[in-house]
């Protein structure tokens, strides 16, 4: 199979190469050479797709989402514009605000700066996937208890960041929370409450710092 390495193709354009590869693959399969088939499967994944829409299968919140997308469609746009999963928000579309944060596996990422086509084959969790049977997750409940949201537009992103943090580090301190949430922006200024909510979800209560005093 060494001969089919692309650099040995000389004058062939890579499009021609990959077109002809289909034929090679068929021939090889009939030859039933296991190792060759495996190698070919690998090379077939190198086939060029697009620029027009291609089938993309995402696994979101435990369910399969089969879409037809151009390769340039981001994961965020796939969720928001091609499915009804609008929980992840678009705040900047430039990996700077965190409203679009989702989990790839257990890892929080900006879905606005990730192509949908490269997000296949790994479990994606959005904010819609956290509450089970209408019961808020521990993090969601802590956000509710601490009023860690105002307009709520950044909230799904923060919830995902905190959820991911607690999976990685169940007993974070305040600095850990700040480090984990520095990539999320809130314009309503809810940060102190988000910090308290994250700590509460980790089992650490913070005392209220508000005092009510009568004027007279």
């Amino acid at each position: 199979m060494k001969n089919s390495e692309p650099e040995n193709l000389g004058a062939h354009s890579r499009r021609t190469f990959f077109k002809s590869l289909g034929t090679v693959a068929a021939t090889a399969a009939t030859a039933q050479v296991q190792s060759v088939a495996a190698e070919l499967e690998k090379i077939n994944t190198e086939k060029i797709v697009g620029p027009n829409a291609v089938p993309v299968t995402l696994r979101v919140n435990g369910e399969k989402l089969q879409l037809l997308l151009e390769p340039r469609v981001t994961l965020l746009d796939a969720l928001r514009n091609y499915s009804s999963l609008t929980g992840a928000k678009e705040g900047c579309d430039r990996a700077t605000c965190g409203a679009c944060t989702v989990l790839l596996g257990d890892t929080p990422i900006y879905s606005c700066q990730k192509l949908a086509i490269e997000s296949q084959g790994i479990e994606i969790t959005t904010v819609e996937g956290l509450a089970k049977n209408e019961k808020l997750s521990k993090v969601q409940q802590a956000f509710l208890d601490k009023d860690a949201l105002q307009c709520g537009y950044c909230t799904p992103g923060f919830v995902m960041s905190v959820t991911a943090l607690l999976k990685k580090n169940p007993r974070p301190n305040a600095d850990d929370v700040k480090h984990a949430c520095a990539g999320n922006t809130c314009r309503c200024g809810t940060h102190p409450r988000i910090l308290q909510a994250a700590l509460r979800a980790a089992g650490v209560e913070t005392a209220s710092k508000t005092e009510v005093v009568d004027y007279v």
């Binding site: 390495e5 692309p6 650099e7 193709l9 890579r14 690998k42 090379i43 994944t45 190198e46 086939k47 060029i48 797709v49 697009g50 620029p51 027009n52 151009e70 390769p71 340039r72 990996a95 700066q113 990730k114 192509l115 086509i117 490269e118």
Partner: peptide
């Protein structure tokens, strides 16, 4: 702009695929 897309499995094929006008995609940031 629209682009095509491929996943490379060896540095050599990556180089071949990227050719003159392509770009490598890793983190993508």
């Amino acid at each position: 702009n629209a682009f095509t897309y491929a996943t490379a499995h060896s540095p050599a094929s990556a180089r071949q695929l990227v050719a003159d006008k392509g770009a490598y995609l890793a983190g993508g940031n």
